[in-house]
Every structure is written in C-alpha cells, then in structure tokens.
Computed example of a mutant assay.
Amino acid sequence: MPTLPSLEQMTARLRLKQLHLLSALADHGSLLKAAEKVSLTQPGASKALQEIEAIFGVPLFARSSRGLVATEMGHCAIRYARLMQTDLAHLRGEMEDILQGQGGRLNVGVIMGAVPLLTEEITRLLAQYPDVAVEIVEDTSARLLHLLDRGRLDVAICRRSVSAQPQLYDSIDIHHETLAVVSSIDHPMAGRSHLELADLDASRWVVYSANMPMRRLLEREFHEAGLRFPHRLFETTSAFATLALLRRQPDIVALLALDVAEFFASMGVMRILPLALKSRSEPYQLVTRRGAVLSRAAQLFMQSFRDDPEPSPGRSTGPGPSVL
C-alpha cells in the first residue's frame, strides 16, 4: 500500500502551476489542451504531471482511448486543487477590495432557525456598506464550527455548546429562540384552537438528528408529558425539505424556529399549530474562532449586531468582545 508524503513535504514541493494543471486536465482530458490552458509546452506539462504524481506517490490519471482519465485519487486531488484556486481568487479579490477602500468579503455560517435573523442583519450591513461581498453557508452548528476551525468561515450564528471543546470559541448570545410546531394547512388538526402534545402522538414528525439541541428539546417535551417519543420520523435540517414533506403528506408535523415558521406561514404554505411548548431552547450565538484575526467585513458584520437600535425580541444586548 502506497505511503503518502507528510503535509510538510507536500507544501514544500507543490506549486500553484501544478494545481492549475490538474484542473485543466480534468476539464479537457487532453495533455495538449491542458498545456495550452496553463501556458506550458506539452513536454513541460507532461513533466509537471510526472512531478505531481511523484509528490503524491500515486497515479492520478490513466491513459485511455479518450485521453487522460482521472483515477479515484486523481478526482480527490482535482477537487482540492479547485478549492485552492477558488481560495486564491477570493484572496486576490479581497486584497483588491481593500486597496480600493471597498468592503471586502464576508463568509458567514448560519443554522436554519437563524436565517431570518441573519438576512435582517445582512440587509442592514449592506445598506451601509454596499460593496461587501457575502457568502452564506447554512448547516448544523457542529458543521459550522468545523468550518470555522478550517478558516472557511469568518463568523457563524450557531451554538458552540455542541462542540466537545467550546472553549476554542468566542461567542455572544444574540437571540433567544422560540420554537413552534407546524403542519400543512390541510392537517386534520390545523383548525383547532388549542392542542396538547398527546393530540399529535400518532403523527409522523419531521425532526433534527439525534443529539441536536432542537431534537433534545422535543424529546424532553414528550418525556415530561409522559409520552413515548415518536419512532416514525423524518430527520432533516433543511427547511425546504421540511416544507416539501408537509405539503406532500398533510398528516405530518414538524418543529421549527418560530421566525422560520412565521415566514412560511405568512406565505400561506404552512400552519403554526396552537401548541405551547414548555421547554426553552438554547440561544443563538455569534461565534468566532478564539484568537482568529477577523477581516474588516467580519468586523463590520459583528459591529452591526452590537449597534442594532431595535434588537429582535429576546436578543441579548449585553457587552460582547470588541471587534473594531
């Protein structure tokens, strides 16, 4: 079994031109066309490919009647080569924005329930700084923290409590989440004026995966009501998947953040059921990696939260870490 070189060895030997060649080979499948794309002669491209494969110690392409075809390891290398090219393009673009006195780039992560809150803040930010470029990544708290660790995000609206090492992050509580049970507008109980959890005991639920904060809260509600937690479940973190399931199967119910539920209910595509939950959810937090140097766009975004003259209901207005 081949042994891969260490990260230090890869870093010392790999060149950006070689990574560009990998992408060009994947696009064209021809050494000649790839060489033209990266401004190399065909012998030069052939030598560069040999050097790349020598660095990794495994073949990245196989020759066939159709030209060069990437191996499984080749596809892996190509994917990361393209990521690095994208990062380099973002680096250049952000540096150019800084030189021109513009806003730069903000990479922000968000959990599904906080999307309305985020879009409100982004709108406020862009009203003041219209040149800021924004990338929004929606995912679970665990995944967003992982992206913060890798430097893929500047800041995330999530919960650091899901991490085994929450001390690695700085955070500010920004919003105390309220949860709602929702259904299709055609659900048999959608017209009721009051519901208890037992009334939905036979329903199929759309829920988050096990051990996630919203899932734990719902499990606690069933336990305190003396009810068995449902076993007929759909598990997803996608609001769109939840909405599609509710529309396809009118007997389904789901647990959503109230802000998200109200957004969809205002469009007439789901109903908020009259069921009051007793448990409180963990607050959303504005999370950064401890010790990370924030870009100017990230600083402006965090300052926007602190300067909000009309904080959302439940939002903490206490002091947070200085970012400017």
Rank of each mutant, 00 (worst) to 15 (best):
V155P: 06
G29M: 00
V110R: 04
V182F: 06
G320N: 11
Q128W: 02
Q50R: 05
R289K: 14
G314A: 05
L148Q: 12
V207H: 06
V162W: 02
D173M: 01
G226H: 12
L324E: 11
Y129W: 08
M302D: 05
D259P: 08
V69P: 04
V134H: 01
T178C: 03
D251Y: 05
T11K: 06
S266T: 10
D186N: 13
D131E: 10
I52E: 03
A261T: 01
K37R: 14
T317D: 09
L125H: 07
H20A: 15
L256R: 01
G74V: 07
A81M: 08
L145N: 12
A127P: 02
L21I: 01
I185E: 09
S295T: 15
P213V: 12
V253W: 09
V260G: 00
A48N: 06
R160A: 14
M302A: 06
V260I: 14
S203I: 07
I52C: 04
P130W: 04
H20Y: 12
N107G: 02
R15T: 15
D87G: 15
L233V: 06
S6N: 07
G314D: 06
A276G: 04
G314S: 05
E221A: 00
R280G: 05
L179R: 07
A241H: 14
L31H: 06
P311K: 08
A156Y: 00
R92D: 14
V181C: 10
Q9A: 07
M10P: 02
R66Q: 13
T71Q: 04
L32K: 13
D251E: 13
A62I: 14
I52H: 03
T288H: 09
L218V: 07
L60M: 15
L126M: 06
R82Y: 01
V182M: 08
K17W: 04
Q285S: 08
G291H: 03
S163V: 11
Y208G: 06
R79D: 10
M112A: 14
V108E: 12
S23P: 02
T242F: 05
L218F: 00
D87L: 12
C158M: 13
W205G: 09
H187V: 00
M95F: 11
A164Q: 15
T86W: 11
L277G: 00
E51F: 02
R271K: 15
S193V: 04
E235C: 10
P250Y: 01
H187K: 06
